[in-house]
């Protein structure tokens, strides 16, 4: 008997389910990478995974610790230089789906990975944007996966590293963007989607065992819930075993074992 999914596992599984075999997916490191490879190893074996290190169509057997691990290059269809990756493939409009994580998110799915506190005198200096600002702009649509908590899901971002829906409504279109922006947020408690008009994130599905109150308690703004709020189908034995095997292989490889 498989032990039930932890909240973090449920987040990864919910994120993986959202991916399709025909997606051309630009993969962020960490949680997005786990979800993308789980999808590839379960229901979407044909998915094209692209990492910003230039690896196109990569099929890693273990999860990379870094965006440029050798495993990505060894298993890729081809590897291009980084300027080409950002110019031809991302800005060129070839990516259907960008998959990002972040340190902080607001109700319009804008992301912060730059600083907490003032930019010139930060309380916490975070790594910065990397590829995210342009992945958020140029991918056909964007998925985000992040664990909930009041320090992560905040009322107001101290810094907008990557634009989601800006101030909401048609803000993206007003800035000339033709892409859809964030369309789905997979957390450890629920799935959120932007309201079609206001673009404010709305909880559309609660994971098994999670409650509305838990979501409220872990969100820095008062979250809206969809009228037809669903329950996320529980993790299947196959999803759990593939994910746990992937993590076990990865841990063994990274510890030098």
């Amino acid at each position: 008997m498989t032990t039930p999914a932890t909240p973090t596992e449920m987040m990864t599984i919910a994120a993986a389910r959202a991916l399709r075999a025909d997606d051309i997916c630009f993969v962020g490191i960490g949680a997005p990478s786990a979800a993308c490879n789980l999808a590839r190893l379960t229901h979407a074996p044909g998915i094209t995974l692209i990492y910003e290190s230039g690896t196109i169509g990569t099929k890693p057997d273990i999860l990379p610790l870094s965006i440029g691990d050798g495993e990505l290059c060894d298993t890729a269809l081809t590897t291009v230089a980084v300027p080409e990756m950002f110019r031809y493939w991302l800005q060129g409009g070839r990516i259907t789906l960008g998959f990002l994580g972040g340190a902080q998110i607001d109700r319009f799915a804008n992301l912060n990975t730059t600083v907490v506190g003032p930019y010139d005198k930060p309380r916490v200096r975070l790594p910065g944007g990397g590829g995210a600002p342009e992945i958020a702009a140029h991918s056909g649509q964007v998925f985000v996966t992040m664990a909930m908590g009041t320090r992560a899901f905040v009322e107001k971002l101290p810094f907008i590293t990557s634009m989601g829906h800006g101030e909401g409504g048609d803000h993206r279109a007003r800035l000339g963007l033709k892409t859809r922006g964030p369309t789905r947020i997979m957390t450890d408690l629920c799935v959120m989607e932007p309201d079609p008009e206001s673009k404010e994130l709305t909880v559309v599905s609660l994971h098994p065992g999670a409650t509305r109150q838990e979501v409220r308690d872990n969100c820095g703004w008062t979250p809206r819930f969809a009228a037809n709020l669903a329950e996320t189908p529980p993790a299947t034995d196959r999803e759990l075993s593939v994910l746990r095997d992937l993590h076990a292989r990865t841990k063994k490889a990274h510890s030098g074992g």
Partner: peptide, 10 residues
């Protein structure tokens, strides 16, 4: 020249 930083604070 690039299409960059749309809506971002940098």
């Amino acid at each position: 020249a690039l299409r960059g930083y749309v809506g971002a604070d940098l």
